[in-house]
Write a protein that binds this DNA or RNA. Sequence first.
RNA 1: UGGCUUAUGGUGUAAUGGUAACACAGCGGUUUUUGGUGCCGUUAUUCCAGGUUCGAGCCCUGGUAAGCCAACCA
Length: 553
Amino acid sequence: MSEIVKERSLNFIEEIVEGDLKSGKHSGRLLTRFPPEPNGYLHIGHAKSICLNFGLAQKYGGGTNLRFDDTNPVTEDTEYVDSIKNDVKWLGFEWTHEMYASDYFDQLFKYAKKLITKGLAYVDEISAEEMARLKGTPNAPGQPSPFRDRSVEENLDIFEGMANGDFAEGSKVLRAKIDMSSSNMLMRDPIIYRIKFANHHRTGNKWCIYPMYDFAHGQSDSIEGITHSVCTLEFVSHRELYDWFLEKLEIFPSKQYEFARLNLTYTIMSKRKLLQLVNENHVNGWDDPRLPTISGMRRRGYTPKSIVDFCDRIGIQKRDNLIDVSLLEFFVREDLNKTSTRVMAVLDPIKVVITNMPDGKVEPCILENNPEEVESGNRIVNFTKEIFIESSDFMEEPPAKYFRLSPGKMVRLKGAYIIQCDEVVKNDDGTIKELHCTYVENSKSGNDESGIKVKGVIHWVSATEALKAEIRIYDRLFKVEDLSNEEGDFKDYINENSLQVVEAFVEPSLKEAKIGNRYQFMRNGYFVPDLDFTSEKLVFNKTVGLKEGFKVG
RNA sequence: UGGCUUAUGGUGUAAUGGUAACACAGCGGUUUUUGGUGCCGUUAUUCCAGGUUCGAGCCCUGGUAAGCCAACCA
């Protein structure tokens, strides 16, 4: 009896690819590309695109180029190039070729002249305002510029002059000559080259004219022989132009397909807005763990696997979507539950004194490193007369079904003994100073002869052996689920309590923690050493909490 | 007063003319020396109106709603 494995259904792009492969288009060749502009850091939305493009190539035996869409020198920088390469690699993907749109500036310049020669492009020199006015609106057709019918020779001559730096920035542009009354605004003689006296991160000062996106992207695809050029939905109306250029230029006909970008609840995915948060110090840099950037998520403790699994699950579609961040959290918990080392840490301590334990006595206890993975072994944690427990694990007047510690009641200390609370010692102001408890000597974990059954098990650390650590706890960056529904400035909705820093006590083994290690602080959540971690100053980030079954209050 | 794109539980994704399913979230139970994990169960879905068909979430027509398009950004 063979097991029936239900084949996962194809998304619409996979269907197109399979169709093309089946029909022998491009002789069965498949080449995709991931084309970031190096003007910001990658975010989880880019991860969706990366997984799609690289995933297609992996699945169907093709390749994927990493191509930097660097046609606007004023916003682009090598810092971004480096971060992007690092993030793609960290996610686990390898590109076929590393390319830059700027590698094609010479070719693109020739293409522009070819268009001019064919009478399909002209130099315009009306003002930007005038050009906008003549463009019309989606409801009204545009009007031709007075410069629309210059001769080929004159256009060629002035365009060369533009490239030579003969004209001021903004004084002239090269436009494609298409149709000023098209219902597609992009076909109303789009600008294809503009003058910018700016230093480019790769070509330096070689050029003072730069192609626009529409005159670079499709041609770059074509030059590289990209078979399937996948982009997001806002480019749907660009497709007509994309096809027009490749057809008029008579070059390899790459095809563009569009899918919906990812939106996540309680955050933003716009590079422009992310840049604003970084520049205006609402967060601490592009890798702030509260940000949905790949570098932020990495610092926060997300694993590549959790991100890839998430992207796989959300699918590829053409409708706008807003995905609940809890789905992302599910995948990171799923991964971390299987792989993270269990340790004990007390984030909000109360002291407990074990009154029937001799001063200075140290009782080694054996704790499992990871119950989900037996081979991970055990470690020793010392139990001492004075310990800390979580303040939420004690209540003087407990509600019903409270399984933790309260006056006269017993709990199990994880991996150690059962204790009973005998006395609550208070400060002058009425707050709790410490708890006096007795431990049941024959109740040690693994060797329990007490016969006592307790419902609650709590974590603890030795007050004499525990280490201090700084713990950074993150909450959602924005107060509202769907920013697109809100009026006004998105920054009005920032959650000002999204970062909480607490001083905690952690078990001594954490002194040896290394960046990249992942821990479960038992009954608390998943934590990782922050980039600021040193063995002198322990700093941990909370990745995500455990699911909570019982909530007090 | 245009063009393009899209509409399936709370969220996301399937079902490719033949019993509307899966995951997350929620709720309940069970196991458990993590109120975690695991396991079991459960609530809830085809935008509207017509039409074609033995049969429509799927095809057709007409509505409605949402998103995108008037940057020398990508």
